[in-house]
Computed example of a mutant assay.
Amino acid sequence: MDLKRLNYFITIVNNKSYSKAAEKLHISQPSLSNAVKKLEHEVGAPLLERSTRKFALTDAGELLYTRATIMLSQMDIMNKEMKEVIVGGKGEVVLGIIDSLKTWLPKLIYNYKQSYPAMVFKLFDVLSVEHVKQTLQTYKSHAIITNQLIYEEDIDSIPLYKERLVAVLPQEHPLSKKTTLSLADLEQESFIISTEGFQTRIDIINAFKEEQLKLNIQFEIDRFETAVSLVRNHLGVTIVSENYVMEPIDKTVIRRPIDHPFLERTVYLAYMKNRHLPVAIQQFLQSVEEHFSTNKPL
């Protein structure tokens, strides 16, 4: 079965339009229609309903679309793996990360590049659980370092370490006089929290519910950096990873520990179980695991 025709067919279905698909594929609409007719002849059945104004697939079309999508995805994955095998130690490490890794990741990458100086690192922010799964399963990343535990048969989630969540306040805030805070101390404060889909948000909300307290949410953000900036400008208080604010931030904000057992999170290294990875990338992932298995400080 011709792979190009299958790709044409999938593109038509995804766009629900011959004209849009032709534009995306940079071919003429008649050529696209002709390719689909040849594919139907090869299959031995119509793939698209032609008797209605609404775009629809036949039963044969539904089956072919499902199977062809998986097959072409696997072909794309194979091509990526083959390219990585060929380049060996001269490729790139594509790594999803969370904000709090700045205390240890740069040092680990520095040590790694002493052995693999030609490897290029592409680092990007990890958002929701779905974002983690999607980037791994489509091979858009080699690994993710995240505080999300991923429940998927094809993904390994290796626990690296635990870290506490701490409160961040403006320097002159009345609560700054206390060495340790309770959640009740923060109940009436203008609160800055992660948007939907972040594990940190879930942990904070669950902790407040457990204490039967309400959160006064005034800002929702994607990055700890934004949260701290809002605190710095006296727009509220927030709770972030202790490692994000481990190093001195500046004199305009302070951090305080919170007395609550729920406010702790685990950081995981997640990657595809059966994906072939070049030795150079395997070595990097191994170095991450070994860094914490030997109880080295963060």
Rank of each mutant, 00 (worst) to 15 (best):
E153I: 02
D154I: 01
I155S: 02
D156E: 13
S157N: 04
S157R: 03
I158S: 02
P159I: 06
P159Q: 08
P159N: 08
L160E: 08
L160G: 07
L160T: 05
Y161L: 15
Y161C: 10
Y161Q: 10
Y161S: 10
K162T: 12
K162V: 07
E163F: 07
E163V: 10
E163R: 08
R164P: 00
L165S: 09
L165Y: 13
L165A: 10
V166H: 08
V166D: 08
V166T: 10
A167G: 12
V168L: 13
V168D: 09
L169Y: 05
L169I: 12
P170K: 10
P170W: 10
P170A: 13
Q171V: 12
Q171P: 00
E172M: 07
E172P: 00
H173W: 07
H173I: 08
H173T: 05
P174C: 03
L175Q: 05
L175A: 06
L175T: 04
S176H: 04
T179S: 15
T179E: 15
T179V: 12
T180K: 13
L181D: 06
L181Y: 03
S182A: 07
S182I: 02
L183S: 08
L183N: 07
L183E: 07
L183Y: 10
L183C: 09
A184C: 04
A184H: 12
D185Q: 05
D185N: 12
D185P: 03
D185L: 08
D185H: 07
D185G: 02
L186I: 11
L186V: 09
L186H: 05
E187F: 02
E187K: 15
E187L: 02
Q188I: 02
E189F: 05
E189D: 07
E189S: 09
S190V: 01
S190E: 12
S190D: 15
F191H: 05
I193D: 02
S194Q: 14
S194I: 00
S194K: 14
T195P: 00
T195R: 13
E196L: 14
E196C: 04
G197D: 03
G197M: 07
G197P: 04
Q199F: 02
R201V: 09
R201H: 03
I202G: 00
D203P: 00
D203M: 02
I204G: 01
I205D: 00
I205Q: 12
I205V: 15
N206A: 04
N206S: 11
N206V: 01
A207C: 05
A207E: 01
A207P: 01
K209E: 13
E210Q: 14
E210A: 13
E210K: 15
E211Q: 14
E211Y: 01
E211P: 00
